[in-house]
């Protein structure tokens, strides 16, 4: 019988590889009996989706005009 710690790790690794039949079965059986892990699986999917949304676009930042002027000076010294 796999522990919750092992099963939640298997749930995560399923995002990266195909689980062996044995692991798949063990996970399935465990999930039927364990509410904690069932909740975890659902939340973990949601967090995955949130991370995807979060990193979908670049957040927008700008250097101030002063900083740009300073950068230009710095660069002109380098050449």
């Amino acid at each position: 019988m796999k522990t919750c710690e092992e099963v939640t790790l298997l749930i995560e690794s399923e995002n990266y590889k195909v689980l062996s039949r044995k692991d798949r079965l063990a996970t399935k059986i465990h999930l039927m009996m364990c509410k904690g892990c069932k909740n975890y699986k659902r939340d973990s999917k949601l967090i995955h989706e949130m991370l995807r949304v979060k990193f979908k676009d670049l957040s927008s930042y700008e250097f101030s005009l002063e900083e740009k002027a300073a950068l230009r000076v710095k660069l002109s010294k380098e050449v």
């Binding site: 670049l58 927008s60 930042y61 250097f63 740009k68 950068l71 230009r72 002109s76 050449v79």
Partner: peptide, 25 residues
Amino acid sequence: NTTKGISHTDLVENHSDYLLSFAMT
């Protein structure tokens, strides 16, 4: 100060904000 038609002004004016946004994300 241009090499291959790229000046430091070009780097700062046209690319620095994009690079900053990339790094901040």
